[in-house]
Design a protein around this nucleic acid. Structure first.
Lengths: 195, 195
DNA sequence: CTGTTATTTCAGAAATGTCTGAAATAGCGG
DNA sequence: CCGCTATTTCAGACATTTCTGAAATAACAG
């Protein structure tokens, strides 16, 4: 491995985390190298820096491209393929979320929907379906939320994340402000006096 | 495998998805069985239903407990351990997020911080650190956001998720409402006319 | 078309991860 | 303490994934 100490630590960490993230060690290492690289690298650059086989680099790059985490770039006067990660880290996060959703959630959502279509045949299946329905609902709610906020410009998204739970405060304020003069506030559960 | 067809499909799917979710097949299957079960099950119940070895069940349950996705329950007049998943699916989601954060994000955050403390020794390391800083920032922002909204009651959280990107509309409205009479609206980038 | 360089494919080697059966341990009731 | 049941441990069998080197393919330049 032929890297400066700082970069090497970063790369080795990404390799080790690979198994937890569901990618092979080399895939993680290649991503890390490309992420911090000052310019797009070709396959041989990566072989040189990581000391893994050329074929492993080729397959790992294919995998990273299938995740859309690495893109193919062409350099002037060089017919070798070069590779780079997107510059914009927000774009990277969006891609990561989309791809993980596609692989880890969508197949399940599809199975759950099928199972909910079936007519239950026993009391046990009725119970199971109720439970599956809960799971389905919560996943739909969360993926729906993401599908919605994902459309926001990054600037807005950052703003929203920065607010955190304070948005709730703002929403409460909105409720109060929108009460027209003369009208009564809509009663809330917490406002109802115990009988 | 000794399960009703509907439950069996559910269980097999969780087993297959295991590899994508970073858990072993049996672990996924056991979780699925417990999730839809009408009552807490003991290890032998699980052996019976899944047809895997007793020792595998024991180890897999340990793993699920380490994820806090399954809890140990005691049944009256039975000294065997029984196991159940939390009833509340929102609690399950919270646990899942926390545990995945702990395993998949926190170690990286810690390494990134260390790397950012080091003094760079070459221009290459300066560039790498800048990139690492971007990554660190975005992860901090997202984990910070979650740490904040995680404190909300479920009811509020559901409300917020239901709104989706509409919160932004509400925030804009807040901006307008908070402009005091006589004051001018704060200029925005999109408001400035081209020179 | 030919020679050269770049990339991909793929069989099997190496490494890792999962699962089982047997044996060890734990814990309770008498 | 003993006998019984429940649970855990762990070596190694088995399965899967990852990686390599060699060969095939592709793609261009002359």
């Amino acid at each position: 491995m032929n890297l400066s100490p700082l970069v090497q630590s970063f790369v080795l960490h990404f390799g080790e985390m690979g198994s937890r993230w569901g990618i092979a060690r080399t895939v993680g290492q290649i991503y890390a190298v490309l992420f911090v690289a000052e310019r797009p690298l070709c396959a041989d650059d990566i072989v040189e820096r990581l000391g893994v086989s050329r074929s492993n680099v080729s397959m790992s790059l294919k995998e990273l491209q299938s995740w859309r985490l690495v893109r193919l770039v062409h350099m002037p006067d060089d017919r070798r393929d070069h590779f780079a990660t997107p510059e914009d880290v927000w774009q990277i996060v969006r891609t990561l979320v989309e791809e993980r959703k596609k692989r880890e959630i969508d197949p399940t959502l599809s199975v759950l929907r099928e199972l909910l279509m079936q007519a239950p045949r026993t009391p046990e299946e009725v119970q199971a379906q109720a439970r599956i329905r809960d799971m389905h609902e919560i996943i739909e709610l969360m993926t729906g939320w993401y599908a919605d906020v994902e459309k926001l410009e990054t600037e807005r998204l950052v703003q929203l994340l920065g607010l955190g739970s304070k948005v709730v405060k703002v929403l409460e304020m909105k409720d109060r402000l929108l009460v027209l003069p003369g009208s009564r506030p809509r009663p809330r559960r917490s406002d109802t006096a115990p009988s």
